[in-house]
Write a protein that binds this DNA or RNA. Sequence first.
DNA 1: ACCTGAACACCGTTCAAGT
DNA 2: ACCTGAACACCGTTCAAGT
Lengths: 240, 240
Amino acid sequence: MGAKNPFLGREVVSRRGGPVKEPLSRNRIVDEALRLLGEEGLEGMSLRRVAAALETGPASLYAYVDDLGALQALVLDRALGEVDLTGGRRRAWRERVKAVLRSYVKVLLGKRGLAQLAIRGVAVGPNALCIAEALLEVLDAGGLDRATAAWSVDLLTLYVTAIAAEQSSGHEPENPEGPIAHGVSGASAELYPRVHAAREDLLAGSGPERFDWAIDVLLNGVLRSPRPRGRHRKPAKRPP
Amino acid sequence: MGAKNPFLGREVVSRRGGPVKEPLSRNRIVDEALRLLGEEGLEGMSLRRVAAALETGPASLYAYVDDLGALQALVLDRALGEVDLTGGRRRAWRERVKAVLRSYVKVLLGKRGLAQLAIRGVAVGPNALCIAEALLEVLDAGGLDRATAAWSVDLLTLYVTAIAAEQSSGHEPENPEGPIAHGVSGASAELYPRVHAAREDLLAGSGPERFDWAIDVLLNGVLRSPRPRGRHRKPAKRPP
DNA sequence: ACCTGAACACCGTTCAAGT
DNA sequence: ACCTGAACACCGTTCAAGT
């Protein structure tokens, strides 16, 4: 430890005596987990790896986080904070919905394991609620009745999450554009004549093209479908 | 081993000499894995448990199955063979589409871990192709052009899988109707006024009600949206 | 050549023993 | 009271040593 280059390493912060590790906190844990998720994918974000990156043992994390599932939910919601909810305030409402949803997929595809994480278990953290709030506002501005708007938020976010997960599975390690292409283009003309005939259409179009088409389909459908008749479940009195 | 009750146990099949275990086969492995999936859920379907149930070591399975992912794909496709593709031949095409998709969700929700398995990684096995084939046929009968029909199959199956996974996460162990209800009904009126105001609508409706509404939305949307413009990617010549 | 026991490198979670 | 090393009960996968 004698003559070390002072520009290397950063143990300058050390004081004589005990270690000076920044104390653990839920925030630091989620930060580190999100970084690991982006760099190593969903499988790489293990409690043990997060703990190791924070220079502690895996048991220490349980003081701040209930279990792996809770950490995953926290990480997902942290990431969802990056979604742009403005949607370009001046544009037509349909374009604003599209803008928000496009930002949503962009965020989900921006970190390696994020879309896979989002597709298991719907997001319900504060940032997910902000997204629902923003979508409800825009759909309301578009003139949808409240019941239709509410169910539409569910439909739109569920579909967008699903399409992000599908696309991100193609981005992963090997697999030239995912396993779908391989399965479809290998479909025999005798057994699957229609799949075979439509194979070019099935594989046609880039990600954004299909995404835009799908969102238009969903919005057109929502606008032309009758108001949902689902009876409200009053949580107050329950039947005996 | 002297005087045993001959009606207990079933080692009557044993012959002197070696063991008489039915030989392993890919079929037996997939059967056993599917059974475990239904009884123990997705996490319970491990290679080691499947091997133990077949009275062998985990390494033995690798002669018949590439890895866990391959086994999961085989199990999923095996299960998809139960989907009813007839859709009631005499009905109107929209009802036939709905019938096939309803059978699809029913199958996915029929075994505990199946929907969770389906949502990770789109199905591309022979039975999945049969479903695509059947849907293409009905959509063709409905007068959709080939490109729209092709993209619609993707949209419909992706959404139906996603909704099954969402519903099945509610069916799991604890959680009174899933985490969504808890997150939404706890949304504060100050931070999320619209979510708060719409909370009854967001939670209203049974599974089938929302499913039927969503399928109508998708079909209405598909019928009223312009033909997708996505250029075909000819696999022959690629740009330099 | 085929099969597999044992080993390897990981997991999430618990808990007793430390401070 | 808080923290955590070590242990527990699992994983998927590999491979050498058997037949």
